[in-house]
């Protein structure tokens, strides 16, 4: 089954951010190597007015991928909503990755503001991709507010710690079997991305792990492989871990050595 967000079908299950690369050229090469169909673009910091960042926007457009603008760094509902409107005008897309940050050091989502902003934006025709925690009640409220995708964190933004609470992520998967789920933030290594996919997540979204790698292009490729690997593993129905060893070669016909 292919991936779809708001009725848009996609091939790649890796979403890539566009900040922090050593140069736009390396960013473009990394996007190509990742095979991503979607890149996130943070509006807030890239241009102080709508027109002045044109050169960078046209570079991103030249990558020929779908843009998911985001409200990175927004601290309140109003700020996030305004940024979303600017993004819609600039990129001509109803998609918005909604971030409402509650605390500067952890960059933890302000889930109260998030739900409120998600409702305002959904009512206004936006297709909201909320960056949220792994809290199930919050997830439920976001769906009620109109979101049709959920993006829980693996760990705090930029921390590279992987999946802090795999249990919570698994229960989210079990709780919302039909909602596209994306692990967003905290991924540091391809193995983290593979682990998220093995939990049955639909996609992963990351930025720093690629952009700040010594060789971002090679790392983008590594993540593409990991995401594909994890997805295939999930579809293949992995074995369950067990407490005791089980022989992988047949024992029929061999003498009972331990008698």
């Amino acid at each position: 089954m292919s991936l779809s967000f708001y009725d848009v079908e996609l091939d790649s299950r890796l979403l890539l951010g566009t900040s922090l690369y050593p140069s736009p050229q390396i960013m473009l090469d990394a996007i190509a190597a990742s095979g991503s169909d979607i890149v996130t673009v943070s509006l807030r910091r890239e241009s102080s007015t709508e027109k002045s960042g044109q050169a960078f926007w046209s570079l991103i457009k030249s990558a020929n991928v779908r843009v998911l603008p985001n409200t990175a760094g927004c601290r309140g509902v109003k700020e996030a909503v305004n940024t979303a409107h600017m993004a819609r005008e600039l990129f001509g897309t109803p998609w918005i990755k909604l971030e409402v940050i509650g605390e500067d050091d952890t960059l933890q989502p302000d889930v109260f503001g998030l739900v409120e902003a998600a409702r305002i934006l959904s009512d206004d025709g936006f297709h909201v991709f909320p960056y949220t925690t792994d809290d199930l009640v919050v997830a439920d409220r976001l769906l009620n507010a109109g979101c049709r995708v959920l993006m829980p964190w693996g760990a705090p933004i930029g921390s590279g710690r992987g999946l802090n609470n795999p249990y919570a992520l698994s229960s989210m998967r079990a709780h919302f079997p039909d909602v596209p789920l994306v692990v967003d933030a905290g991924i540091g290594l391809p193995s983290h991305a593979a682990a998220a996919m093995e939990l049955g997540y639909d996609a992963v979204l990351l930025n720093t792990a690629v952009a700040r790698a010594g060789d971002p292009v090679a790392m983008a490729r590594a993540f593409a492989l990991a995401v594909e690997s994890g997805r295939t593993a999930w579809q293949a129905d992995p074995m369950m871990p067990r407490d005791m060893a089980a022989p992988s070669t047949p024992v029929l016909g061999t003498p009972f050595r331990d008698l």
């Binding site: 910091r45 890239e46 241009s47 102080s48 007015t49 960042g53 044109q54 050169a55 960078f56």
Partner: peptide
Amino acid sequence: ATMIESDD
């Protein structure tokens, strides 16, 4: 110094 993709 800041680094912002902007020509303003």
